[in-house]
Design a protein around this nucleic acid. Structure first.
Lengths: 197, 197
DNA sequence: GTCTATACCGCGATAGAC
DNA sequence: GTCTATCGCGGTATAGAC
């Protein structure tokens, strides 16, 4: 079982997901037909179905990839900038979104689809839970060490702070995609003010 | 041109939208087929198409109805409780959502669909803009009269407050639909704390 | 592994009697 | 206005040669 074969397949899958994501972004998960996706990959139907057994699997892979693009870089900063306060962390998260509007829009498409598609709901729900847990883990320690709160107060504070983070994230996604006249800088001001509490 | 005829048609349209909304809620806008919707209304295909010329119109009508269910009662309080502060207003809004989970879920479906469907984007964007304008109008005066801010400061404050309201609304919608272990009361605490600034 | 060609189904929408 | 029956298209997925 040669290892190159696995690498090749992974790379091919990555390319397919990238092409499919472009289609999903433009037409939605249901609106993007397999014909269109196949054309976007440059492959043939048979070839594509050798890598993904169904459209559903392709949808889930696209959603997971977009969701991870939001979270992974933020998790990366755990090691890069362990001393950053909550305000910097939130700002970094939002600027990551601002720099990748495609992933941001795919995030909103995923949330919408998750309402009526259990498999998507599982992916989206697990992702949101992971963001929350990451925040609680990171800033639970921070609240005790840098803020000097006693453990009980810190637990309360961090739970509310995590809720604020999620809410700010979701507000940014929805408003940046849908609100006419959305002001990116004003939103960052709001997020900074909120995180400074 | 008898007036009863118009009333009859309006009532019939309302019934159709209600049945269609139940289908959209369960299967999404694209996943719900006309066959299914027709069965849900109890009518026949021909009858339904006499009231709505296309599925698209039915989708837009459903989305508008769900969106209005969120905003209208809130606007109604403009006259019922003109003295309520921001915190009460936000709480009322969220409890309205909590009491109508179907409309809440349809809201999220609409936002998701709006990303790749311009007609839905227009409806959703106009609605979000209306919520924001309503907040700014209502609490712009409030900030000057009850909070005693000078006009310039009030303008800044109300812009940020409106952003906070939207964000809290959107956070509630996404989290209540998708986050495993979502805590309604904790979210209300967060919203109240935020509005008390 | 990848291709072409196609099966087969369910979709939105319509025709025409009543 | 409402019904039944149906059209034609485009959907996902597969078969079988290479």
């Amino acid at each position: 079982m040669p290892r190159v074969s696995q690498q090749y397949k992974d790379e091919r899958r990555r390319e397919i997901v990238a092409a499919a994501s472009r289609c999903f972004l433009e037409h939605g998960f249901e609106g993007a037909s397999m014909h269109r996706i196949i054309a976007a990959t440059g492959l043939s139907a048979g070839a594509l179905y050798n890598h993904f057994p169904s459209k559903q699997e392709l949808v889930l892979a696209s959603a997971r990839t977009a969701l991870d693009r939001v979270l992974d870089p933020v998790e990366g900063t755990d090691e890069d900038a362990p001393g950053g306060g909550p305000a910097e962390w939130v700002t970094g998260l939002l600027e990551r979104l601002a720099g990748d509007p495609a992933a941001t829009r795919l995030l909103l498409i995923t949330w919408g689809g998750a309402v009526s598609e259990p498999a998507l709901a599982a992916v989206a729900g697990e992702h949101l839970g992971r963001v929350r847990d990451r925040v609680e883990e990171r800033y639970g320690r921070w609240a005790v060490e840098d803020l000097g709160l006693d453990p009980e107060r810190a637990r309360e504070w961090v739970a509310m702070f995590a809720q604020a983070i999620l809410s700010v994230l979701q507000g940014y996604v929805v408003q940046s995609c849908l609100l006419p006249g959305f002001d990116h800088d004003a939103y960052l001001d709001y997020a900074r003010t909120l995180a400074a509490q």
